[in-house]
Design a protein around this nucleic acid. Structure first.
Length: 595
RNA sequence: GGGGCUGUAGUAGAGUCGGUUACAACGCCGGCCUGUCACGCCGGAGGUCGCGGGUUCGAGUCCCGUCAGCCCCGCCA
């Protein structure tokens, strides 16, 4: 039989007790971290979310509490009253925040018992993630996850305070909304009241926040769940959280300036890091040229060098042919890496093949010159020119990639990131931000044989590129921007189209006919015709931001109840089959699973 | 859809060349212990080697399949 709480009131949290409370009568409540039974004296480490404090139970002081303590096991829930006392000389524990004191217990309640947990609730035990996920409520008792979720709370609070001070108001938008073409696969929800019809869960509140601008709310934000039915990654969950913002009467620089202030405040409040403002900016074209990717990790240099022109006339056919057919030959200098083993070089080659590259040429720069399978193809002049262009020094490893521009950039750019990690150039407590601007507006989709929006269909072109929409739409740039931190895209947004005619033209370019546009986005087009102000916004991925702030390697470590890679929840066992009756109400008949 | 890694008591691991009854640690249970703090000492219980099939006199070990977890490509406006 458990003890009743009655009118006991907690006076302190376990972690906040220190020498300052010595002599006070206190009451703490929490979970048993550990019991140490010395036959006479019993020590209990009591834990709550703030920390751990030692309870001392002396049979001479209170036999009843002491005998109760003998029944106590790990994770029992206790309430304890007693006097905060200094620990005897020589028994102070400097590794504990509360290690100078203990509570001399006079009364003890066992509020609840616990089964032996499947794993130890401490910071030492390594446990398979599938077991941690099945017993998530126990894993969440451990300090690592508690610290992460507490920081997540502080970040959300900082964001709300900052945006409130800047005149933003938080407005909720529908979760049951309309499926739209473009973008990710939707999660669908059947409508019982409208058989055969489905809601979609929002991939983002994009359209609604634009409507709020038309409604005159001027500055909106929301910390909001978004849903995309796509495959998972270490930094991707099908349901995730955005800090979603939209502002009226602003241009790109206005949005960037307010938002980088928010990020700086978040870093200061969450981890005490000072962020230099304004943040760096790179155009998309420059990012691709120097780093091969649109989310470069700027914690280290090792930039990509375009050597297409230098090798276009060389005897090395692989390079010359690529150059002649409109491809790119690019290289990077891995300083001091000429000691890489054959195996390491093979691993690098395997790495670039993941991104579709056919191979990777390497050169070790030695006292005797180039040591490389491709050295013999180049004249002395060519070697000198390449060494000069790559700033090659003895001890360097040069890596070359020749392919279509898309593959050469991506493969070598990813290799650069990979090497940065491998060589320890990317430190977790180093934060390098950059805004990437001037993205292309459109991208050609070879499979669907049409343009698709790089950002989304509501993104405005650069004002000077509007003419290109009629001549060379593929060359038009967008008023879009991403915030990149340490090689991770943590946010992205754009100035939106507020002109109905331009929006219709955009749908046209995307191969969305007038009728389809009417059907899918008619409400937006209508709204734009009723005095839509110029507006723009941005959304930050809160989960990814938290990963970087906490140093987590997995998005699951910053989410209270995350999904597995197969998008299931090991705790609740969602998703699950539903009853025939439920399906009937929804007018849904299942097909047999196809083999 | 594809590539890769992992799977052995509650937990995390060892297990040789295919060969006796599958090991030791932490945890758990019992006993002892009045200053420990990841307490200590003594004793004990606990196993469908993920699952299914195959090879073999014999499989945790080799082969095939499958399931689960993780990482990656595709996908993610």
């Amino acid at each position: 039989m458990n003890d009743k709480l009655g009118n006991w009131k907690r006076t302190h949290r376990c972690g906040e007790l220190s020498a300052g409370q010595i002599g006070q009568d206190v009451c703490v409540m929490g979970w048993v971290q550990r019991r140490r039974d010395h036959g006479g004296l019993i020590f209990i480490d009591l834990r709550d979310r703030d920390g751990i404090v030692q309870l001392a139970l002396d049979p001479d002081r209170d036999p009843e509490a002491h005998s109760k303590a003998e029944q106590v096991r790990n994770e029992f829930v206790l309430a304890a009253r007693g006097k905060v006392s200094p620990r005897p000389e020589g028994t102070v524990n400097p590794r504990m925040k509360t290690g100078e004191v203990e509570i001399e217990i006079s009364e003890l309640l066992i509020l609840n018992r616990s089964e032996t947990p499947p794993f130890m609730i401490d910071e030492f035990s390594e446990v398979a993630e599938s077991i941690r996920l099945k017993y998530r409520y126990l894993d969440l008792r451990r300090p690592a996850l508690q610290d992460n979720l507490l920081m997540r709370h502080r970040v959300a609070r900082t964001v709300r305070n900052y945006l409130d001070c800047q005149g933003f108001i938080e407005v909720e938008t529908p979760v049951l909304t309309k499926s739209t073409p473009e973008g990710a696969r939707d999660y669908l929800v059947p409508s019982r009241v409208n058989p055969g019809n489905f809601y979609a869960l929002p991939q983002s509140p994009q359209l609604f926040k634009q409507l709020l601008m038309v409604s005159g709310y001027d500055r909106y934000f929301q910390i909001v769940k978004c849903f995309r039915d796509e495959d998972l990654r270490a930094d991707r969950q099908p349901e995730f959280t955005q800090i979603d913002c939209e502002m009226s009467f602003v241009n790109r620089d206005d949005v960037i300036s307010i938002m980088e202030g928010m990020i700086a405040e978040v870093f200061l409040q969450a981890i005490g890091a000072e962020v230099q403002l304004p943040m760096a900016r790179l155009t998309y074209a420059e990012a691709m040229d120097r780093f091969g990717v649109d989310n470069p990790d700027l914690r280290f240099a090792m930039e990509l060098i375009d050597i297409t022109a230098l090798v276009s006339g060389s005897q090395f056919k692989v390079f010359a042919d690529v150059a002649a057919s409109g491809g790119l030959v690019k290289a990077l200098n891995a300083k001091g890496c000429s000691s890489f083993s054959r195996k390491e070089l093979d691993d690098l080659t395997d790495f670039v093949k993941i991104y579709g590259a056919k191979g990777l040429a390497w050169v070790k720069v030695t006292e005797e010159g180039w040591q490389s399978p491709i050295a013999k193809f180049f004249t002395a002049d060519e070697l000198a020119a390449l060494n000069d262009k790559l700033a090659a020094e003895v001890g360097d490893l040069l890596l070359f990639m020749a392919d279509t521009p898309a593959i050469a950039n991506e493969a070598l750019g990813r290799l650069r990131g990979h090497l940065g990690q491998k060589l320890g150039l990317a430190k977790k407590d180093d934060f390098k931000f950059a805004w990437i601007t001037d993205f292309p507006l459109l991208e050609w989709d070879g499979e669907e044989r049409r343009h698709v929006a790089v950002h989304h269909p509501f993104t405005a072109p650069l004002e000077e590129d509007i003419g290109l929409l009629d001549t060379e739409p593929g060359k038009a740039r967008a008023q879009a921007y991403d915030l990149v931190l340490n090689g991770s895209e943590i946010g992205g947004g754009s100035v939106r189209i507020h002109d109905q005619a331009v929006q219709s033209r955009m749908f046209d370019l995307l191969g969305i006919g007038a009728e389809e546009a009417r059907e899918k986005f008619g409400f937006l087009l209508d709204a734009l015709s009723f005095g839509a102000p110029p507006h723009g916004g941005i959304a930050f991925g809160l989960d990814r931001l938290m990963m970087i702030l906490t140093g987590a390697d997995s998005i699951r470590d910053v989410i209270a109840f995350p999904k597995t890679q197969k998008a299931t929840c090991l705790l609740s066992e969602a998703p699950n089959e539903v009853s025939e009756r439920q399906l009937q109400e929804l007018a849904i008949r299942l097909r047999k699973a196809q083999k």
